[in-house]
Design a binder for these strands. Structure first.
Length: 367
DNA sequence: AATACGTGGGG
DNA sequence: TCCCCAAGTAT
């Protein structure tokens, strides 16, 4: 059994963290408010995403969708366009859907109980605790990446955090200062983000230094223990930029799953022993039921997702005939190079658009 | 319980 | 180039 801080130590840990936070805590945009809507948006954006990346998206989002009613009545495409580039697009779809639930079920007023907040799509235990403690100062704990690292070091956890989830949650709950839940949680995250960092933690500046088991055993560089990871599979994808006069064919991916609801250039996986040209011809016939002629290579893009890597091999193609059918997507459109930026695209596809604009600065493509 | 789900930055 | 991972959730 791992030794945890004793109850008598808890008060001291709470006081020292709060004192540190009040002096050294970060000044972040979402800390200027107690508006549960704004705090909710920030919490969703911050899932698996660094603060530095989130800040400009957060500021822009609140200008476009200043309140839950505005978000609820917006088009999903407009919501995805605001989210474009942030990744994990289910977060945007869930935010939109949850906004509609809030308007319908709560007249737009954010609920204040854990059960009600957890029932909203995209909100799990950490996000719920983060919102309710930050917005209403409710005494609910969190366990995000920062807190996992801080607590793993505090008790010198001898296994990867994912294998000790229950224990870390218990510790987060036991430590929470019930008189200052908002500041305590924010302080715990700030400690992880600025002092108890993954690499080269500055233990000399840490308010918990003398209580930290990792520091006492000089294990802070080894903890938390790494999670085991599987090697990433690699796929080669043939992609078609189908040109018909001034227009290019794009399709909207199905609403669920990878990059759901975003637009893309059509294509698919290159099978073993298949040439890129044959793959593109086959995919376009299978998914759109039109005839094309595969032309020159435009660009090749390597891109890494969380669970696999892809190489997109993009060819310019000439439209020959047939009425495009949405057999594997939700919608098809012919757009000009000028119109294309209105549509939300995944990051790898924006590189294709950039290559097209470079090839045809006047917007006229010749294939 | 294990896997799907984006992107950018650091070493 | 490659690996790791960052304010996690859903299934």
């Amino acid at each position: 059994m791992i030794s945890s801080p004793e109850i008598s130590k808890i008060n001291s840990l709470q006081r020292s963290l709060l004192a540190w936070y009040w002096q050294q805590g970060r000044d972040l945009p979402w800390r200027k408010t107690h508006d549960p809507y704004a705090i909710w948006v920030s919490e969703i954006m911050l899932q698996q995403t660094q603060v530095k990346t989130v800040i400009p998206y957060y500021e822009r989002w609140l200008k476009t969708f200043p309140d839950v009613e505005t978000l609820a009545t917006a088009e999903l495409q407009a919501v995805l366009k605001q989210w474009e580039g942030l990744g994990y697009y289910a977060r945007a779809r869930n935010l939109h859907r949850a906004a509609q639930m809030l308007v319908q079920q709560y007249q737009g007023k954010f609920p204040e109980t854990l059960a009600e907040v957890l029932a909203l799509p995209g909100i799990g235990r950490t996000t719920a605790g983060g919102i309710l403690s930050a917005a209403f100062d409710r005494p609910l704990s969190i366990l995000d990446g920062n807190v996992k690292r801080v607590l793993s070091r505090l008790i010198a956890l001898p296994v990867p955090p994912s294998q000790a989830s229950d224990r870390l949650w218990e510790l987060s709950e036991r430590l929470l200062d019930l008189t200052h839940p908002r500041d305590f949680n924010q302080g715990l995250m700030d400690l992880g983000a600025t002092v108890c960092t993954r690499q080269q933690p500055t233990c000399l500046l840490c308010p918990w230094q003398t209580d930290c088991q990792a520091y006492r055993q000089n294990l802070q560089a080894q903890l938390p223990m790494r999670e085991t990871t599987a090697p990433l599979p690699h796929k080669r994808i043939g992609v078609a930029v189908i040109v018909n006069g001034p227009q290019i064919l794009i399709d909207r991916r199905r609403a669920e799953g990878l990059l759901g609801g975003l637009w893309e250039f059509p294509g698919g996986k290159i099978e073993a022993g298949e040439t890129v040209e044959a793959c593109i011809l086959r995919e376009i016939r299978e998914e759109l039921a039109i005839d094309i002629e595969v032309g020159a290579s435009l660009i090749t893009i390597d891109h890494a997702y969380t669970h696999f890597r892809v190489t997109l091999i993009v060819h310019l193609c000439r439209y020959l005939g047939g009425d495009p059918q949405p057999l594997a997507c939700d919608e098809i459109r012919w757009v000009t190079l000028d119109e294309i930026e209105q549509y939300p695209f995944p990051k790898a596809n924006t590189k294709i658009i950039a290559a097209l604009k470079e090839l045809a600065p006047d917007g006229i493509l010749t294939v």
